[in-house]
Amino acid sequence: MPRDFTTEFATFSLDMHHIYKMNGEEWRFAYKSNGQAIFSLIDDPATKVTYELGTLNRMNAAGLIDLKPFGLMPEHLRPAPVEDYDDVSF
């Protein structure tokens, strides 16, 4: 059965506040340079790994990256959807 990529996997984005779980370890995005993304290990920031952006997109499509959006931010500061329509203005 074919996979529905529009609902099964989130659009891959690079953000320093996200947690990226790859190969059983948790990483944070450090910086991007020349078509490559560099991540540092959360438990040991001196440990780095580099991936080509195309490789990251393929890993995400294969389900090899578990993304926790804004996982490194305190919970009360994380962006959340607006649930009160009185706060929405046009």
Results as ranks from 00 to 15, higher is better:
Lys21Val: 03
Gln36Ala: 08
Leu56Cys: 11
Ser33Met: 06
Asp84Phe: 12
Lys21Pro: 07
Lys21His: 07
Asp4Met: 09
Met1Asn: 13
Leu56Ile: 06
His17Ile: 08
Glu83Cys: 10
Arg78Asp: 05
Ala80His: 05
Arg58Ser: 07
Leu41Trp: 06
Asp44Met: 12
Gly54Cys: 14
Asp87Pro: 05
Met1Gln: 15
Ser13Asn: 12
Met1Val: 14
Pro2Gln: 14
Gly54Met: 13
Met59Arg: 14
Thr47Trp: 10
Phe12Cys: 07
Pro2Tyr: 15
Asp43Met: 00
Tyr51Ser: 09
Thr47Gly: 08
Ala80Leu: 10
Ile42Gly: 01
Leu72His: 00
Pro2Gly: 15
His18Gln: 07
Phe29Ser: 05
Leu53Ala: 04
Ser40Thr: 12
Thr11Ser: 08
Gln36His: 09
Met16Arg: 06
Asn60Trp: 00
Ala46Lys: 12
Met59Pro: 08
Arg78Leu: 06
Thr6Trp: 13
Phe70Met: 03
Leu53Pro: 01
Val82Ser: 15
Glu75Cys: 01
Phe9Gly: 05
Gln36Thr: 14
Ala62Glu: 11
Leu56Tyr: 00
Gly24Leu: 06
Phe90Ile: 07
Gly54Ser: 13
Ile42Met: 01
Asp87Met: 04
Thr47Arg: 10
Ile65Glu: 00
Val82Pro: 15
Leu67Arg: 02
Asp15Pro: 00
Ile19Glu: 02
Asp4Ala: 12
Met73Lys: 05
Val88Tyr: 11
Glu8Arg: 07
Leu72Phe: 04
Arg58Cys: 05
Pro79Lys: 02
Ala80Ser: 13
Ile19Tyr: 03
His76Ser: 09
Ala62Met: 14
Tyr31Met: 04
Lys32Arg: 15
Trp27Gln: 00
Tyr51Glu: 04
Ile19Gln: 06
Thr50Met: 10
Asp43Cys: 02
Pro81Tyr: 02
Asp84Pro: 15
Phe90Trp: 11
Ser13Leu: 15
Met59Asn: 09
Met73Ile: 04
Gly71Cys: 03
His18Tyr: 10
Gly35Thr: 01
Thr7Gly: 13
Pro79Arg: 12
Lys21Phe: 04
Ala62Ser: 14
Leu41Gln: 00
Asn60Leu: 07
Leu77Gly: 10
Asp84Cys: 13
Lys68Ile: 09
Pro2Ala: 13
Thr55Phe: 06
Asp4Phe: 03
Met59Glu: 13
Ile19Pro: 00
Asp87Glu: 12
Pro45Trp: 09
Asp43Glu: 06
Glu52Val: 06
Glu75Val: 04
Asn60Val: 02
Ala62Gly: 11
Asp44Leu: 07
Arg58Gln: 14
Phe39Ser: 02
Tyr85Cys: 14
Asp43Gln: 00
Thr50Lys: 10
Ile38Cys: 13
Thr55Ala: 08
Leu56Asp: 01
Leu14His: 02
Asp15Trp: 01
Trp27Arg: 00
His18Gly: 05
